[in-house]
Design a protein around this nucleic acid. Structure first.
Length: 767
DNA sequence: ATAGGGTTAG
């Protein structure tokens, strides 16, 4: 009796359980059940059927089809060695046998075996068909084996199978994943009949390899061809928007999803959160997160990443606790984001805790986790721990090497940074843009001018890298450190680079250090032309003049600042002692132990004066006499925090202080000596980053609209706002501004400022 | 009887 597949599936196991011992299935049903077992990855059921086949078979050996089915079954269930045994014992094989086994190797990530089988087909005088090519190309794609993929392409062309949709798409997938943009586009355009899968593959591949603009170009063509996006497309295109930080395009895609009533499933939901998060729209990301019915670990992690990206590290950490309460288990990505938050807060203790938790959960060996760990330890001031993690890592990629190189460079360990760079090259890891930022800054610390220029002008070119502003700024810092200020100025004036405020300020900082007042003045003029209201520049200038005891100039700048209503941000330091964060403001007397702390500061200063410490009296902005100046400097927030830590932590314990501003020269030399007299390791890290936003931002263009946080789609509110400002009459479900919907999207992709974007956005409300 | 694409890290 022949039974339908679905019925078989439903009845299979219970029927087997009840069947009398000598009941055998018909051959036809056996094949069907084997296929079901393969599709469901039901190893148990398949094994039972295999047994039945052997027992019931009157003939000595299984026939070709039966064995092929078995190979397929074992390969799909991950038992590729069993599949191989069956394959090897076959007296006769056909293309199907080969492909079934190849698929097993493909999914086990064993591309060499796939290629080996592909080669051996020739000796069996078997011609590869479209199935074989699709599988072999997928293997090449998986391991980015471009050369093998190209050879396979040649075979495909000879065989004339290039017009098979599967083969064509496999070729596109292989080329785009292997980052061969030209070849991928060639196949897409030369071979007619691209479906949504062709486009999804190519955009995904481009996105993966950072060819974002090319991806956008392909998207344009796709929309132009009126191809309807599916769930995969939305995920990929949202990834593209996130990478390009193109909020407008992202919102258009979101609108289309809403209008077409595409289900926001796990994947689309997380892509939306990620897109809004990476475009800096925390509130939008959260509104998506809030309305999701089921939240998985990716949703939580994407949301945490969105907080972290905005610098709301504490909020992200709180979200982690909420996730735990919701019973969702963290994965390696979650821990990586958490470590990133700890790095942002310099919360070494919390970072250690996450490290332990992750190790217990078995994520220690994950590459992304190790990378995040190196980053956390080095940003939190513990380069030894970073190094330990680095040495322990069995698997390393660019990010790993970069993290270690820039970690060493940041800690002033230029020599080590360059050694690691050499090791990176020796282990055939290709350096990238970020690698050279670290390398050049290491050269800066070591004062290696010639080497710096060699890396910039020669080595970067060898790796086909175009130096960017970060690299040029490193060069300026390098020249500045070496005291070659005039050369630096000459270099800046003669090199056709659009120097920015940071670069000029770098040189100004060198003028401060080397007391080149006249150049400093010239740079101040240039900076004034670039950016008229920058506090950091004025403070640098002020310090430069103060160091030179040019009090007249100091007074001028202070007057200027006062006139513009600019206030210097107060110095704040904080420190974690026994699970509590203690915050200190310069000259703060509010702390409970204030008196004891001030006494300790005085004591420490007396001690280090005996080692030759000379309080710097020239760098304070206060209008007071010299005596008082010394006092003010003594109570800079980091000194207070260190004194507190010396009192409240066991002797010998390391002290980690974080502060908002850059440490002044006086504190720098004082702290070094304090570390010496107290025999402690002291790390002071300045949080040299954008001001932290503690509350969720209001969409800037929506000031007129009350945005509440009650689970409604914040994006819809944006569109409501848009509705009030545009004429709605033009819209019908299919037509926007007299154009097809796709055209409106197309138009706005070409011109991001176009009004079509608002219309498309608005349409989702009406649809 | 054999083949295809997606989310979170730095």
């Amino acid at each position: 009796m022949s039974i339908s597949k679905s019925l078989l599936k439903k009845l299979a196991l219970p029927a087997f359980a009840c069947a009398p011992k000598k009941t055998f299935l018909s051959l036809e049903n056996t094949i069907k059940l084997l296929k079901i077992s393969a599709d469901d990855r039901n190893l148990k059921l398949g094994k039972i059927i295999h047994t039945q086949l052997i027992i019931s078979n009157q003939r000595k050996e299984l026939n070709l089809t039966e064995t092929n089915c078995l190979i397929n079954f074992y390969a799909k269930c991950g038992e590729v060695s069993v599949a191989r045994k069956l394959f090897d014992q076959m007296p006769e094989r056909n293309v199907v046998s080969f492909n079934a086994l190849m698929t097993g190797y493909l999914h086990k990530q064993l591309p060499l075996e796939v290629l080996e089988l592909f080669k051996s087909m020739d000796t069996w005088e078997l011609q590869p068909n479209e199935y074989i090519f699709a599988t072999v190309l997928a293997s090449c794609s998986d391991v980015r084996a471009l050369d093998e993929g190209k050879q396979c392409h040649g075979h495909v062309l000879k065989s004339g199978l290039v017009f098979h949709q599967y083969v064509k798409n496999a070729l596109i997938d292989m080329y785009s994943r292997c980052s061969d943009v030209k070849a991928a586009l060639g196949v897409l355009k030369m071979v007619p009949g691209s479906d949504i899968l062709s486009y999804n593959s190519i955009i995904t591949g481009f996105l993966e390899n950072g060819h974002l603009n090319e991806g956008l170009e392909v998207l344009r063509e796709m929309v132009d061809g009126y191809l309807v996006m599916d769930g995969f497309t939305y995920v990929t295109v949202l990834g593209l928007c996130a990478g390009l930080k193109d909020l407008k395009l992202g919102m258009q895609i979101h609108s289309q999803i809403l209008m077409r009533e595409v289900e926001i499933d796990g994947f689309v939901g997380s892509s939306l959160i990620d897109m809004y998060g990476r475009c800096g729209k925390l509130l939008y990301a959260k509104s998506i997160f809030d309305v999701l019915e089921k939240r998985n670990v990716v949703h939580w992690t994407s949301m945490m990443a969105a907080y972290a990206q905005k610098g709301c590290f504490e909020d992200a950490l709180i979200l982690f606790l909420k996730m735990e309460l919701a019973g969702v288990l963290p994965n390696e990505f979650t821990f990586a984001v958490m470590l990133n938050c700890c790095a942002g807060l310099s919360a070494l203790r919390s970072g250690d805790l996450f490290n332990s938790r992750a190790e217990k959960c078995g994520f220690k060996a994950h590459l992304i986790f190790g990378n995040a760990l190196i980053n956390m330890y080095s940003k939190s001031g513990s380069i030894e721990d970073a190094q330990r993690v680095f040495l322990d890592m069995g698997n390393r990629n660019n990010v790993t090497w970069n993290a270690m190189i820039s970690g060493y460079a940041h800690h002033g360990l230029g020599r080590q940074a360059l050694v690691v760079f050499q090791q990176m090259i020796a282990s055939f890891c290709v350096p990238d843009y970020i690698t050279f930022v670290g390398v050049l800054s290491a050269c800066g610390h070591l004062g290696l001018v010639d080497e710096g220029f060699y890396y910039l002008n020669t080595l970067m070119g060898k790796y086909r890298l175009v130096p960017g502003m970060e690299h040029y700024t490193c060069i300026i810092r390098l020249l500045g450190r070496a005291g070659l200020l005039d050369e630096a100025e000459k270099y800046m004036k003669s090199t056709p680079v659009q120097w920015d405020v940071v670069a000029w300020r770098t040189l100004l900082s060198a003028c401060h250090a080397h007391q080149n007042i006249s150049l400093g003045k010239r740079i101040a003029d240039i900076l004034r032309g670039l950016d008229s209201n920058d506090v950091a520049t004025y403070i640098l200038l002020c310090n430069m003049y103060a160091k030179a005891k040019r009090w007249d100039e100091v007074a001028n700048i202070k007057k200027l600042l006062r006139g513009r209503g600019i206030k210097k941000e107060p110095g704040v330091s904080w420190i974690q002692v026994k699970n509590k964060t203690h915050v200190f403001v310069s000259e703060d007397k509010k702390h409970l132990e204030s008196k004891k702390i001030h006494q300790k500061v005085d004591e420490l200063i007396t001690q280090i004066k005996m080692l030759g410490y000379m309080p710097d009296i020239g760098i304070v902005l206060h209008d007071v006499g010299d005596e008082q100046k010394e006092e003010h400097l003594s109570y800079h927030s980091e000194k207070l925090a260190i004194a507190f830590a010396v009192i409240n932590t066991p002797s010998g314990a390391p002290i980690h202080v974080i502060k908002n501003l850059r440490m002044c020269d006086d504190c720098h030399s004082a702290v070094k000596l304090i570390a010496h007299v107290t025999e402690r390791k002291i790390v002071v890290r300045d949080a040299n980053r954008e001001a932290r936003q503690l509350s969720i931002e209001k969409p800037s263009h929506l000031d007129a609209v009350q945005v509440t946080d009650t689970g409604e789609h914040a994006c819809l509110k944006t569109y409501c706002w848009a509705l009030q400002h545009i004429s709605v009459g033009l819209y019908s479900r299919k037509l926007v501004d007299g154009k097809e919907f796709g055209e409106a999207l197309y138009g706005s992709v070409h011109q991001p400022q176009s009004h079509a974007y608002i219309l498309v956005s608005a349409s989702c409300l009406l649809g």
